[in-house]
Design a protein around this nucleic acid. Structure first.
Lengths: 345, 345
DNA sequence: CTCCTTTTTGGGAACATTCCCAATTTAAAT
DNA sequence: ATTTAAATTGGGAATGTTCCCAAAAAGGAG
């Protein structure tokens, strides 16, 4: 219950030596008598000494801490990215501070301020869907704190980025639907503000074009990723005079919501309507029918982001140029598009 | 790209006033001429001034940061607890540092050291399943840093705790199975080292006893919560000369794994065997059949933990005694135990 | 204009640590 | 014993901030 935490000065006084010597003993500096070091180490142990990282960081001007900001972490995606990043960063001796902005721009700005105030050495970010202004991230850049974007990236900032090939993933998804005989393929798209939504929309369009299928504007709906809206829009699509025979959803939760709506209406999946998601959430293999989806290497995204950050962190004087890494995706076929999928994953 | 971050001294020099005045202007201290304050605020804005939290924390000996340690955060449970806690803490002006120990005792100890070194004001913990020795948490207590346990709690430490009524939840689960006509009820239990596993086991036992059903030792298996083991043990149970007609699993992922094994064997659920899980993961409503389970107030656990911590944090001089909060659970009936559940949630 | 009060400002200590440089001690060589 | 080199130690600055106390400036009353 000792209110006061042990400092090197306490140790120095008790052993009647200088704080410099104690510091050397504790940090493993060679210029200390081995006997002295032993005495210091022993007393430190005995007094529960814990170095004060605040003082060290203040002095050295580096915290060996990296901030990770994500818009949410209820879905499996962001936690898994964080874990991937953390593996790499821990290996390199960096600690991690995680912030989630709850898809709120205001919270994001506040979190950015707090991270800057606590002097993180670097920042890994996926921004909220509300974020239009990126000044709160540019400050880091100006102050020489490297920033890496992933998943949702700011196209206007000259920093390192990690994404998956959303265009290609979407293309493969729609191509699969076409190849299984679908012609009226709807797309529940994400907000226009997110580059990855736009890329997926482009992949959808180009796949249709390549197979000579005209795009029907009424079949493409952008929405804000809240599941209530998904519900409304799926019902709207099914109520069309000519309803779609397939749906490509921006992500798996949306696809699963659609699946529930469609099943509740008594339609058969995949016979009446086929569904493809995006991201291969763990749940997607367990629902009935299994959800065909586009798999992405989630942990790798985190690892790559951390690697890119370390690159900037280590070669600060060299001033390495930022890099963008684009990872591949994978079509995973399950029962929501094909009656008896062979490669059921 | 200014390597050097602006300090109050920079501002003071440029305005030819003392750093004390700048400090006062910035912190909203009343003893500053309003004109001076405006000049300071303006220049601070212009120079991108961000206060150095490290220096302040060093001086004031408080970081207004709380550490949250969890064993993992892939499952939905821990992220949701964290969000609940964060709501309350953010409201009170505290920042949060999240550590996950990946179910590794060693990582947990290292994380604890790092949090202590960075001088968090408080700690919210759910420990790993490997943790037997709690010395790394006791240090916090000794140094006057309040600790709150949740979900997995250390029974030997005199600190605040938040749990759900695991005994009662398990009792309700097994009672439900009995009331739907089951007699050979197996239990896939968690490790003995976790108090909540033990409570659930006790609830299971007492429910059997109360309804006059003898406990069969061969139907109770404790395991380490890895899904591969769950698979093996479910198969083992089904291979018994007298297989069970119901299974109460320690948690939902285990129950879902069991469900997959049972379905793969061509057995009918719930006719041949009924299944109950624990925790009501979001996935459980979507699988086929829906999983009957015990719901627990996940966000509330986090909120309560944060409240208990704040209690200790605010009344440090009063030395409030630690409190334990036990939250209620709820039986959620779905298709894995009853053919046509009315209250399908 | 002088004295007193109030407002505003500046100087310096304190927080815990590292690191440079000088001082001291110890060891080695002559 | 004396000189020189090496090992070990101590002192103090520096990091960015707050806060106390004293000093200075401004305002008010007589």
């Amino acid at each position: 219950m000792s209110r006061h935490l042990t400092t090197i000065i306490d140790i120095a006084k008790q052993l009647d030596i200088s704080k410099s010597t104690v510091s050397r003993a504790l940090t493993g500096h060679p210029n200390v008598n081995e006997k002295t070091r032993q005495r210091v180490l022993e007393l430190a142990e005995q007094l529960d000494y814990q170095r004060n990282q605040l003082a060290i960081s203040l002095l050295t001007n580096q915290t060996r801490t990296v901030g990770i900001m994500v818009p949410e972490f209820i879905s499996f995606f962001f936690p898994k990215v964080i874990i991937g990043a953390q593996e790499v960063l821990a290996e390199a001796g960096y600690n991690v501070v995680i912030c989630h902005s709850n898809e709120s721009y205001e919270t994001e700005v506040n979190n950015a301020k707090a991270l800057l105030a606590s002097r993180v050495d670097g920042l890994i970010v996926s921004h909220t869907k509300e974020t239009r202004n990126f000044d709160h991230f540019r400050v880091f850049q100006r102050k020489g704190v490297p920033v890496v974007f992933f998943n949702r990236v700011c196209e206007d900032m000259n920093v390192s980025k990690v994404t998956v090939d959303d265009y290609d993933g979407a293309f493969k998804a729609v191509e699969h639907l076409i190849q299984t005989g679908r012609r009226r393929i709807a797309h529940l798209a994400g907000p226009d503000s997110l580059p990855n939504s736009r890329s997926r929309l482009n992949g959808y369009r180009d796949a249709l074009r390549q197979y000579g299928i005209p795009e029907e504007p009424e079949l493409v709906i952008s929405y804000d990723l809240t599941l209530e809206k998904a519900n409304i829009y799926v019902n709207h699509l099914l109520n069309l005079p000519q309803p779609p025979d397939a749906l490509f959803a921006i992500n798996d939760p949306t696809a699963i919501e659609a699946l529930d709506v469609i099943k509740a209406r008594g339609l058969r999946i995949p016979d009446d309507i086929a569904i493809v998601g995006f991201s291969n959430d763990p749940i997607s293999a367990h629902i009935e029918p299994g959800l065909t989806t586009i798999g992405q290497p989630v942990s790798e995204i985190g690892q790559e982001a951390a690697n890119l950050l370390m690159e900037q962190l280590l070669d600060k004087e060299e001033n390495k140029p930022p890099r963008t890494v684009v990872l591949g995706t994978q079509l995973i076929v399950r029962g929501s598009t094909v009656r008896n999928p062979d490669n059921r994953v």
